[in-house]
Amino acid sequence: MKPVLYVFIFMTLLIAGCDKDEEVLATIEQQTAAIEKKNTEGSTITINSESYASGKFQEMPYRILLPRNYDASKKYPLLLLLHGVGERGTDNKQQLSLGSKLFQADTIREKYPAFIVFPQCPVSNYWFDKSITQTLKGLLDSLVAKHSIDKNQINIAGFSMGAYGTFAMVAQYPGTFKSAVAVSGDGDANKAASMAKTKWRIFAGKKDDVVSSSKTEKMAKALKASGASVSFKLYPEASHQRSWANASAEPDFCSWIFSTSKK
């Protein structure tokens, strides 16, 4: 999504806060419809047998990558990755534009065998909507029941709207997630205490003109004050889009996520 469109979308969204106003959301939908259609039509993502299998939970499409050489007798970590506003839809493909190449890389799959899950948010919703967080939790529960997933190694990460959803999910389901990565997002600082059991890495771009880095840093400070294990990194020259690229390129990005189980 182009930065200027992110500005229109998120400035309106940030002013409104997480309690949505119908007129505000109607405006957001009009502003994003054209670019979402363009993104879907112009997708160049290749999906094959080594890529993400498709699934659906309560009408929410998702993609899932199983650990290579999956052994049902072993327990594996899971990472839930939440995309931005421009990848919403029903094609069950566009959400792979965020991070799929990283986690599909041979070096990552061999070193960090894990379940990687990419749900796709409906166009009329946002990750922080209560109905959507409930659906995401239901999806996680169904995957844990179906596959050999270590309940102490469930992780979540998100960019932009996905970072909003990351804060919302951890707040609503405290103790569920071992680690959380939030890049260029915001949340309810008043709920920081309920997020303190999760280990956090938070990133932002100083030149982000969509989600102010001060909002993201506010969440990091609130979490730290609540006793959470949290690190915050600000990229001085990074725009909104570059903040995710920089964060995911950190040498220990994957090793930190899949490092140790929660106690």
Rank of each mutant, 00 (worst) to 15 (best):
A157K: 05
E110K: 15
S229T: 14
A180K: 07
L140M: 13
A16R: 09
G162N: 01
Y52F: 10
Y70D: 06
G55N: 04
Q31G: 12
A163P: 04
D106S: 12
D106W: 09
F118G: 03
T260D: 15
D186M: 12
P251T: 01
I35V: 13
Q30H: 13
Q95I: 02
N246A: 08
G99A: 04
S131I: 14
A192Y: 11
N152L: 05
E250N: 12
C18M: 15
S214W: 15
A222I: 02
S184A: 14
V230C: 07
W244F: 15
K191M: 10
A16G: 11
A26E: 15
G17R: 06
Y52R: 01
M195L: 04
L96V: 06
K263V: 10
R201F: 02
K151D: 08
A192S: 05
G55V: 04
K74F: 08
K20T: 12
V230L: 06
K75C: 05
I28G: 00
M1H: 05
V4E: 15
S213G: 09
G227P: 05
A192H: 06
Q94D: 03
Q94F: 01
I257Y: 09
E87M: 06
K146R: 15
I202Y: 06
A238W: 00
L102W: 08
V211H: 10
G89Y: 00
P61R: 02
S212P: 13
Y235V: 04
L96W: 11
L102P: 04
S243Q: 06
I35G: 00
A189L: 09
L140R: 09
K218G: 11
K75Y: 08
T260N: 14
S226N: 10
H240Y: 01
P119M: 01
K207Y: 01
D208Y: 02
A228G: 03
T107S: 10
I15N: 13
N152P: 11
C254H: 14
E50I: 10
L79T: 05
V144R: 11
P61K: 03
M11Q: 15
Q31M: 14
N125W: 00
W244M: 11
Q134W: 06
A34D: 07
K75Q: 14
F57G: 06
V123L: 02
S73C: 06
M161C: 09
G86S: 01
Y173G: 09
K74D: 10
K178A: 15
T90L: 01
G138F: 00
P77I: 05
E87I: 01
S214C: 09
L136V: 10
G84W: 00
N155V: 06
G187N: 12
I202V: 02
V144D: 12
K75R: 13
L80M: 08
S179F: 03
D150M: 03
K146P: 11
F128D: 06
I108D: 07
G162F: 00
S259A: 14
A204E: 12
S226F: 10
H83P: 00
T176M: 12
S226K: 09
I15M: 14
T135F: 04
K137Y: 12
K263Y: 08
F167D: 01
D209R: 13
L81R: 03
I132W: 00
E59I: 00
I132H: 00
M60W: 03
T90R: 01
L25H: 12
I108G: 02
Q58N: 07
S131E: 15
T260Q: 14
L139Q: 04
E23V: 11
S255I: 01
A220Y: 08
L82G: 03
K206C: 07
N155C: 07
L25M: 15
G84K: 00
